[in-house]
Amino acid sequence: MRAHTLLMAVFAVLLAFAAGPGLWGASDPVTWIGSWQKAVFASVCHQDLNRSIWLNGAPMAVCDRCFGIYAGTAMGLVLAYAIRPRIRALKVAAVWALVAILIDVAATLAGVWPPLRSVRIATGLVLGCAAGFLLVSWRNPPSTP
């Protein structure tokens, strides 16, 4: 239980960092360029301004899909207090979310459709939510032979 709460606290902090400098008082994209929040996530996200949610006049430190993943994981961790889905169902959800992300990325790069914020956030949320449940799956009852 304590480890679960610790994980939730870690993800709450990550989410606050990912929200970018707009949450911390900045109100323009110029501040964003030199912000520590941008630097923290620079190696794991493309941080494209056109594919990011803007908060208080500044873009977030991660793109909208990555923010969906972090938010989804936090959501999964919260829901895991009440619901304990089967691990197999979580694996299937994670794989399907990954497939959906790959299709969306490929279609966007090929110009089939433009980057759609709702799709990017939704796919990130599903993947993150499955990851959140899997992170605390030791709380699920052990299987019986």
């Binding site: 691990i87 990851a131 899997l134 992170l135 030791w138 052990p142 299987s143 019986t144 032979p145």
Partner: peptide
């Protein structure tokens, strides 16, 4: 790594 345990590791069985 933690997700890897949930996905790939053998689960402890109840006798």
């Amino acid at each position: 790594g933690m997700i890897g345990v949930a996905v790939f590791a053998k689960k402890e069985e109840v006798l």
